[in-house]
Amino acid sequence: MAEAMKMRATMEGDVVDVKVLIQHPMDTGLMKDKKTGKLIPAHFINMVVATLNGKTVIDAQWGVGIAQNPFIGFRIKGGKPGDKVAVHAVDNLGTKFDGEVVVA
């Protein structure tokens, strides 16, 4: 589901600044469907890994408290233009989300 992820990586001084947006409902499991009155089951991204040229730089775990259509920004030292930044995420139902971007 690469189309669900948008990424940007730019040099800011000697640091790579990465911004990531993932399309996801991030349902908490606590909200009711307004029409049926039934609870909407929890559906959220819970594991996220970011790599620079294949090496893990961020290893994250998320709960339901991350907002819908999650955004994360992070910074990596030691990168340069042309390097590859990739993000791999998985939600609690096992759906995988992958994105990759070249540092500009």
Partner: peptide, 14 residues
């Protein structure tokens, strides 16, 4: 954080 990641995170929470 590992392999050069700076101790910085930006995100949006509920």
């Amino acid at each position: 954080f590992m392999n050069g990641a700076e101790p910085y995170i930006a995100t949006r929470v509920k």
